[in-house]
Write a protein that binds this DNA or RNA. Sequence first.
DNA 1: CGGCTATTATACCGATCGGTATAGTTCCTG
DNA 2: CAGGAACTATACCGATCGGTATAATAGCCG
Lengths: 188, 188
Amino acid sequence: MDTRVALLSCALQLFAARGYDAVGVQEIVDAAGITKPTLYHYFGSKRGLLEAVLTPPFTQFNQQVQAAAVYSGDLPLTLKRVAEAVFTFARENPGFYRLQLALWFAPRDSEGFQVVSSLNRQAHDILEALFAQAVQQHGNMRGRQRAYAATFLGMLNTYAAMALNGYTQLDAALVEQAVHQFQHGIYS
Amino acid sequence: MDTRVALLSCALQLFAARGYDAVGVQEIVDAAGITKPTLYHYFGSKRGLLEAVLTPPFTQFNQQVQAAAVYSGDLPLTLKRVAEAVFTFARENPGFYRLQLALWFAPRDSEGFQVVSSLNRQAHDILEALFAQAVQQHGNMRGRQRAYAATFLGMLNTYAAMALNGYTQLDAALVEQAVHQFQHGIYS
DNA sequence: CGGCTATTATACCGATCGGTATAGTTCCTG
DNA sequence: CAGGAACTATACCGATCGGTATAATAGCCG
């Protein structure tokens, strides 16, 4: 069982650092100190390994976004909670978040995108549902739930990418700034 | 010379559809109807081919963003022009824009990111300079030029990615909505 | 102990990887 | 026409690709 975990850890690290396609199976098993048949015993294929690497943290991520996105009538507070949840997860799982971002923007026909798309779609749907609920209090948002979900997540991911490259830090101040900017724009 | 153009065209199409690492040199030359030595005569290496594919459209893109980003004291108008320039370019060069987005989010150690990073940085710097100028009229934006440049471009790219996947259209109405949302938030 | 399942290594598969040595062809210039 | 530069094909390089057949080992259950 330890071997399985070691494989997942090495694979995540290598995929995040150099890309799924650019990392060979041999390199992963070397890093884990084992041989190829062991990897194929556990995961069946390289794609299976990628799925096993991504699914658990993605499930956890979506759960935490879901928990943060329960709408109680206070949209600013909810958005802040969501931003906190996303930033916290990105900060605590930088390798996963890097990989997830890279695969989300990967070509549609690539294995990586196919594996990540449904998982990523869930987070989007959670946010879209949140904005759809908020429309009841904020009528003039009507019809833009999808755009808001996409741009809010896009903004959080932009900040997360900046942080992953050392340009900023995903702290409470950035949560505040991001949520404020998203709600009220750039002039105030 | 025609051969060179055919190679660039085939390479862009394949890279955009399936990813730089996932596409082999053999496949590119087959698609172009030539053989490998011809490719290596023109571009020297696979990386050189990628640079030749990306640099001209990227230069053109940055020029058009630069032209749109000249600040005449009217920030809303300038932002609208920039958004129009970005959307128009993405609409007219979907393959390039897809590839550029994918490589921008690719791992730092990957060849693709290294090739695209400096080119992409230029667009960011143009926007950062724009916001730095605008601070003179809009003092309360002070200190956030970098964040605004990143999030404005991030928002435009989010919409561009949505459009590339068929979820929206990069038309004048979307320009209006994006610029309005960026300036005034989601409530109005 | 016997037998069973899970796990792991050795050694190998055909295919493809990026890249090149050699030579032929074409075309422009003197 | 001679000669050189530009271009392109045949055929090949060692390395690596994802994946596997075989078998040895290990631990558990009876």
